[in-house]
Write a protein that binds this DNA or RNA. Sequence first.
DNA 1: CCAAAAAACTAATAAGTGTTAGTTTTGTTT
DNA 2: AAACAAAACTAACACTTATTAGTTTTTTGG
Lengths: 196, 196
Amino acid sequence: MAKIKPEKNNSKKEAITQKAAALFKTKGYSAASMRELAETIGVEAPSLYNHIGSKSELLQIICFKVANAFTSQLAAIEKNNESILAKAENIIRFHIVMMLNDFDEVYVANHEWKHLEEPYLSDFLNQRRAYEKRFVQLIEDGIKAGELKRSDPYVMGLTILSAVRGLEFWQHHKKNISAETLENDMVNHLLNGIAN
Amino acid sequence: MAKIKPEKNNSKKEAITQKAAALFKTKGYSAASMRELAETIGVEAPSLYNHIGSKSELLQIICFKVANAFTSQLAAIEKNNESILAKAENIIRFHIVMMLNDFDEVYVANHEWKHLEEPYLSDFLNQRRAYEKRFVQLIEDGIKAGELKRSDPYVMGLTILSAVRGLEFWQHHKKNISAETLENDMVNHLLNGIAN
DNA sequence: CCAAAAAACTAATAAGTGTTAGTTTTGTTT
DNA sequence: AAACAAAACTAACACTTATTAGTTTTTTGG
């Protein structure tokens, strides 16, 4: 019978997780059924349980894969010996790249995390809050160093994070605008504004 | 027995819709059950159907109430005889005000629209696309008029819309930062940047 | 205060949910 | 080719879902 193809992945679990991310993205976690997920893979629903523990485990894997990617990248950037402005730019660019390359997973982590079960839900939110805090701290340092304008650092930080998060709307318009233009123009907008 | 209170609203249907918005926001549309909604109102689930047509009708009402509010406000601003920079600022401020005043409904319209049934789904998306287009057009005009920097107008427009959309993250931090500070700092950031 | 309308209730239905048990098929190793 | 492990299958269970039908209670208006 039909067999789950590992494609470019090494394990079948990863293949399932990837399909799950795509399905959770389009239908939402709650509205996505295991039978539907199985069908996209070419298998009956119970067969999935030879490879995964539960539906919610799939969500956990997706959410924490994304969260860990952002957290570890932030740590790497923090260690660099660059100006704070350069660090902020690097972070923004990383968000953009992640959104373009791992869209399904990032989208699910951003939209469906609320369906995580405890204690994963709390862990996820703590990790995200910590990320925001470190990013805001970076901006605060930038203000003290005179690299950034004097304004509420929280507003600045969250505005930037919100803006890059909104890149999910771009999936449709991808063709019209190159990733490079998008990246450069957005970074420039968020750092230098648009008013003449 | 318990009675559905119209509270400040005139009709009971509006009271139900408002509670539904709050529930859909916290649990998500699919995961929110009619029994749960009924409980928050103090009534049995089937009783709701004396006032509403279906669960999905509630979602329609919420989504289009929000969409129409934004669309009509945009039309009003377009008619004004102001500079384009002032118009853009007004639009940003309106988004911020809507987010602070009608948080539940705006949140649901932004997050749960995908569960709309046809033809409402298509209608909603068309309306939103039209809104974006008109906003981007405004920015394009601003560039031609020399009021705004020369950059991709689509990137500028969507960056702004994404940033204000992200105000939903602020619900938690409301206490620490006044709405006025938030509004002014965000407008300033999006128009003038943050780099020194 | 009684009749009509509005809105609550209980009971039930048909469909769909994630998941388990038990069995058969497939793939691999000796 | 025989044996063993991996992974598919079918059947089923225990719940939950939105919604309808039919009935009783509550509210309204003359």
